[in-house]
Simulated assay, not measured.
Amino acid sequence: MTSTVAPAVPAPAKKKLTTSAMIASFADPGQKTTPAPFGHALARLAEERPEIVGLSADLAKYTDMHIFREAHPERFFQMGMAEQALLGAAAGMAEVGLVPFASTYSVFATRRAYDFLCLDIAEPGLNVNVVGALPGLTTGYGPSHQATEDLAILRACPNLTVVDPCDAVDLEQAVPQLASHAGPTYLRLLRGAVPRVLDEYDYTFRLGKAAELRTGRDVVLISTGLMTMRALQAAERLEKDHVDVSVLHVPTIKPLDREAIIAAASGDRLVVTLENHTVVGGLAEAVAATLAFAGVGRRVVPIALPDEFLAAGALPTLHDRYGLSTGSIVDRVRTELTH
C-alpha cells in the first residue's frame, strides 16, 4: 500500500496595507476632520444661488466637485482632460452671468492653462473661481503633480485674488465669499478628509484679511494654508519650553493684509514665515517685501519648500524631509532663538 502526503497549504498572505500617494491626507492620526468641505459648501450655496455652476477637467472625484455634481447634475459640466477648454468655457459662462467654480489640479491650472486664466479670466475681471487641488506638497506623486510654485506664478497675475485656506473651517466660510467677489479668484484646495482646527480659535474667514490666532512675546509665526495648523501645533509645543509664540494666519495671499503683517513684525520678536510652497515667490518673499517697502528693517526666517523639484513618497516622510512637519518647525525655531 502506497501512502501519499497531502501537499502543504501555504499560509494566507498578510494583506499589504497601502496608501495612495495621490489622495493621501495630511491630517494627523485621530485628528478631527470634515469630509469634502469644499464640495459640500458649494452644493449648499448653490441651493440659494441658481447661477452657480461647477466644472471639472475629468477630476471631479479628486477635487470634491463630485459632491456638487451629485446635488446639482444639471449645473455640472465635465470638460475632460482639457484644462485650457475648462477655463475658457468658465470665462464664457461668467460673461453671461453665471458664477463658475472650475476645478482641476493646481499644476494644470497654473502651468498648463495660465494664458487662459490670465487673458480670458483675469484681464476682463470675470467672476470665475479657479479651484486648484494638490497645492504645494499635498501629494507624494512627485513634480508632475506637486504645485510647489503656483503662488509665485499667480501672485504676478493682475486682478486675481489668491486664497490659501488652513482647514475645513476656512474652506466652508471662503466659498460664499469667493462666489460674491466681483473678480476672479484662485483657491488652493484641501480635499478629502480635511482637518478642522480654526473653530477652536474664535476665527472667522474674511477675504483679504489676516487673523491673529495666538498672542506671544517671543516669536511670531506668520503662516498660510495648512502650515497654520502646523504653526499652532508648534506654538503649543514651544509653550512647554516657556517660549511664547504668536500665530498670524494669512489665508489671502493676494491682496495681502500688509497692515496686519507690519503690526505683527513690530517689536523685537523673532519673525518666521511658514508656507506649503517654494521659498521663491510665495509668502516669505511677500512678507519680506512688505516690511522692506514699509521701511521696517526686520530679518525674516522662511520655513518653506526648497527651490528644487521634490521627491515622490509618503507625505509624512516628505514633510519631515523638507521641513514642513511640526517637529521640524519646533527645531528650527529653537535653533533660531539660540543664535
Rank of each mutant, 00 (worst) to 15 (best):
S3L: 11
S3V: 10
V5P: 00
A11P: 06
A13T: 13
A21R: 14
A21I: 04
P29D: 11
G30P: 06
K32M: 09
T33R: 06
P35W: 01
P37R: 10
G39R: 12
R44M: 02
L45C: 07
E48G: 11
I52G: 07
I52Q: 04
I52E: 03
I52N: 03
S56F: 06
T63K: 04
H66G: 00
H66W: 08
Q78W: 05
G80T: 08
E83Q: 12
Q84H: 14
A85Y: 14
G88C: 09
L98P: 07
L98C: 12
P100M: 05
P100F: 10
S103L: 00
T104Y: 10
Y105T: 14
S106M: 05
R112Q: 04
F116S: 11
F116E: 08
L117F: 14
C118M: 08
C118R: 15
L119K: 07
I121Y: 08
G125I: 00
V128F: 11
N129M: 02
A133I: 06
L137S: 09
T139C: 07
Y141D: 15
P143Q: 11
S144A: 15
S144G: 03
A147T: 08
E149P: 02
E149A: 11
L151F: 14
L151I: 15
L154N: 07
T161R: 05
T161F: 03
V163D: 04
P165I: 02
D170K: 07
A174Q: 07
P176R: 05
H181K: 14
A182P: 02
L187P: 05
L187T: 06
R188V: 10
L190H: 08
R191Q: 13
G192E: 11
P195T: 10
D199Q: 08
D202F: 11
Y203H: 13
Y203Q: 00
R206G: 04
E212Y: 02
E212C: 12
E212F: 01
R217Y: 01
D218L: 12
V220Q: 05
I222K: 13
M227D: 06
M229S: 14
A234P: 07
A235H: 12
E236K: 10
E236A: 15
D241M: 13
D241N: 13
S246N: 03
V247E: 13
H249L: 01
K254R: 15
P255G: 12
L256T: 13
L256P: 00
L256N: 09
D257C: 15
A260V: 01
I261Y: 03
I262P: 00
A265F: 05
S266R: 15
T278H: 04
V280W: 03
V280S: 04
V280H: 10
A286D: 13
A292D: 07
G295V: 07
V296A: 12
V296R: 15
V300E: 02
V300S: 03
L305V: 08
P306G: 02
D307L: 01
D307T: 03
L310Q: 07
A311H: 14
A314K: 15
L315N: 10
L315V: 01
H319K: 10
L324N: 13
L324K: 11
S328H: 04
I329P: 06
D331W: 01
T338E: 12
